[in-house]
Design a protein around this nucleic acid. Structure first.
Lengths: 239, 239
DNA sequence: AGGAAGTAGGACGTAGGACGTCCTAGGCCT
DNA sequence: AGGCCTAGGACGTCCTACGTCCTACTTCCT
């Protein structure tokens, strides 16, 4: 007889409970005590099961108040993806590259679609972002993120949008921990402007090419080897 | 003074421990007891922190043996994505559509690249998959998955490949739980054959179009509305 | 009466100990 | 040498107690 890990089993039961009762995000969950009674296990086991669900943002636990249904947002994956990127196992630059690669693939296709169909207002909003990016302030980074998010939002696919945001955040964090050089905001703004123009022209191929060019530039910055990767032996500063 | 959740803090410390010591996947971790001493908290707290990491496959716990560094594989996200897809909050079909949409975007771009550069042997392997898909056995599904995985693997981007696999699995599961009609394997095989031909022609645009066509077909099947969505009121079989 | 401070209860957070279960390694027997 | 078997280590579950935090209700002052 196989004993399939108590708490894992409990986690499934809790998820089922949410799905079957059709509880929407934010709805209150049974308390730990009542789950204890209903499922018939100790509070410890219940808590461990909830902890696993909490790590995936499937539930939202508020100290002193209660446990609620979560929204399974993409922030939950940040720890996962960041670890995956930093953990050794493959070449570390390979992991960073993979991250960029996926971003590029999704954003390229997304941009193709947005090029074919978007509100005229979008262009204005994007222009505003680029204007902010030209000033070398901390806000430039925020504007960069917003730029990409605006395009993703325009396409209307929530999952894609969230994933792009996740990848962006993790990439920036990982890159930062490597001590990568910040790109000059000036040229960065220019490359984003190209994307806007492409979108405005409503030509999918031109837009895709603009996005490719943007990423090619970012990749070049990585490969420039201003830093030699970490986790392979010599960590950034040299032995 | 903010108290940032003990176990979350512990989780971070454990992750740091792995990253700083550069422990590779599979390496043994300190025991719960020694973590208890080192970090200075109760075993309960340690275990809850580990449980969260375990949910993300950042660590791998083996009963009676020990705790080891995990590989952060994409299987960890299955629970997350499946819940996200099934949880109400947006229209449920919207979630399924989002899943397909992201798959389509990644696979389209991936296929573009593979079309431009791939081993001749790949075509042979893909042909073998399609041959298996033509037989209406359980193996047809496996072959379908393998088909897409082969293409992703050829491109060489691990993350993209794993994500596609994840999306495929979750889509199939979610679709299955909705009681969706299985597509006729005959026509499915034919659409895959088109993709192979496109790849063999080494024309990126043709390949992309073939992939689009494939997904358009799948989408059509969803929208056909053989089942009316779940979670909005009437669950499949009618009240 | 209206509002603000205080309080009681509920719910999650952490601690510590005990015992069960499972695994591996190493000694022992054949 | 090879297989069995046992001792010990490590994770799994349970129980109990107490701390912390939040909400909602009560109470008291204006």
């Amino acid at each position: 007889m196989v004993r399939p890990q108590r708490s894992e089993e409990i986690s499934k039961q809790i998820v089922n409970l949410i799905v079957e009762r059709r509880l929407p995000p934010g709805a209150p969950m049974p308390t730990e005590i009542s789950l204890m009674r209903d499922i018939g296990v100790s509070r410890n086991s219940i808590r461990e099961a909830i902890k696993a669900l909490q790590a995936l943002e499937i539930v939202d636990v508020r100290h002193g108040y209660g446990t609620f249904v979560g929204s399974a947002g993409s922030e939950a994956l940040q720890t996962w993806l960041l670890f995956r990127t930093k953990s050794r196992g493959a070449t570390d630059l390979g992991r960073l590259r993979d991250l960029l690669e996926v971003r590029e693939m999704i954003e390229t296709e997304l941009t193709r679609r947005v090029a074919l169909e978007h509100r005229a207002e979008l262009i204005t909003q994007l222009e505003a972002c680029v204007a902010r990016m030209k000033r070398d302030s901390d806000d430039a980074l925020v504007a960069d993120r917003e730029f990409h998010d605006l395009i993703c939002a325009e396409a209307g696919f929530d999952l894609a949008r969230e994933l792009i945001g996740l990848f962006w955040d993790v990439y920036r964090t990982a890159e930062g921990e490597l001590g990568a050089p910040a790109s000059t905001q000036r040229s960065n703004a220019r490359r984003h402007q190209v994307i806007i123009d492409a979108l405005a022209s409503r030509d999918a191929d031109v837009a895709a090419e603009a996005v490719h060019r943007h990423f090619r530039e970012v990749r070049k910055r990585i490969k420039a080897g201003q830093y030699g990767g970490f986790g392979e032996g010599v960590p950034t500063a040299g032995a």
